[in-house]
Design a protein around this nucleic acid. Structure first.
Length: 310
DNA sequence: AACCAGGACACAA
DNA sequence: TTGTGTCATGGT
């Protein structure tokens, strides 16, 4: 068992507390927006930029431990978007049962503000992959090509997400060894485009949503869905509304009585219906669908157990 | 053992 | 414009 002393921050590490109401770390970190968080014994362990981070919830607060000394914690409150007024966001949502059900089921789910390159690269790897597989690919990519970062004693080696410059030097074969399959060419070419500075990646936030999306769509392996993920999760475009298979299912089921709807009509609907923070609504619908499905499969397992016991 | 996964793309018709 | 096959790999 754990010795009580091991629950204290290790030597050289640093800890801080943040007030945070309605902030559900588990929902936020498992909702398919970031892929580097693991549920450890003491909390959620991950990497933000070049920092190892441990996070956990404690009654209305949020606590963090990092590896080295830290005075300015702005990078963390920015990543977690601690200053966001969630009730104000929710207040802009339409008052209708399906969305309210999703909000109720996912109370405290938040959007993160991630590093643009890591977010872009991760979602290029996400296409037609399950979330747990994306996590594995990203981890493998970081371990092979990422810079090692400081960790507290006893934690083991951790690595930053590899830079575009580093990945641009890779052979396609090396990337495929991370099990990313056909996505390797997309990732490699996109890394090379950014490395050659053929698009102004950093300036996207000063553009309109449509302009910024058009720039991202130039990148190989980036279509509308992945572009919207990056715009929402990294650049903070609150109206970006990524539609993947889950969200499409949710929309069709909840708003179109189960009929299949083409992407253009779907986009027209979401733009008109969900308001200025549509992307937030999208994340609630996405997570809601997955939670419901998870519960269903648990019920099935449970019923099997009971029949076996009898 | 089929079927599907936070898709994009080239190519038909 | 809308539909279909392909890409690679692993989970359910």
């Amino acid at each position: 068992m754990e010795h009580p002393q091991q629950l204290q921050p290790a030597i050289g590490s640093c800890r801080n507390v943040f007030p945070a109401h309605d902030y559900d770390l588990a929902a936020t970190l498992t909702s398919g927006q970031a892929f580097r968080w693991k549920n450890a014994e003491q909390g959620w362990e991950g990497v933000i930029g070049k920092r190892w981070v441990l996070l956990w919830n404690t009654h209305g607060q949020l606590e963090a431990t990092v590896a080295g000394p830290e005075v300015d914690w702005h990078w963390l409150s920015h990543y977690l978007q601690l200053d966001l007024d969630l009730p104000a966001v929710v207040a802009t949502f339409p008052e209708e049962p399906p969305l309210r059900a999703a909000l109720e089921a996912c109370r405290g789910l938040r959007l993160l503000r991630q590093d643009p390159w890591e977010c872009l690269a991760s979602f290029i790897l996400s296409s037609s992959k399950q979330i747990c597989q994306i996590q594995q690919i990203v981890q493998s990519l970081c371990e092979r090509f990422g810079e090692q970062i400081p960790t507290p004693s006893g934690v083991g080696a951790r690595f930053a997400f590899p830079s575009a410059a580093r990945l641009a030097q890779c052979e396609e074969r090396e990337l495929r060894e991370c099990k990313m399959g056909f996505r390797a060419t997309y990732l490699l070419e996109t890394a090379q485009v950014l490395e050659r500075r053929e698009i102004d990646f950093a300036a996207l936030s000063s553009l309109s949503l449509e302009e910024a999306r058009a720039v991202l769509l130039e990148l190989p392996g980036v279509g509308k869905k992945i572009a919207d993920c990056v715009l929402l999760f990294a650049f903070g475009f609150q109206q970006a509304f990524p539609v993947d298979v889950w969200v499409r299912k949710a929309l069709q089921q909840l708003y179109f009585s189960g009929r299949r709807v083409n992407p253009r009509r779907l986009q027209e609907f979401t733009e008109a219906h969900f308001g200025p923070h549509a992307g937030y609504a999208q994340q609630y619908l996405f997570h809601y669908m997955r939670v419901v499905q998870r519960n269903r499969s648990l019920e099935i397992l449970d019923s099997h157990d009971q029949t076996r016991v009898r």
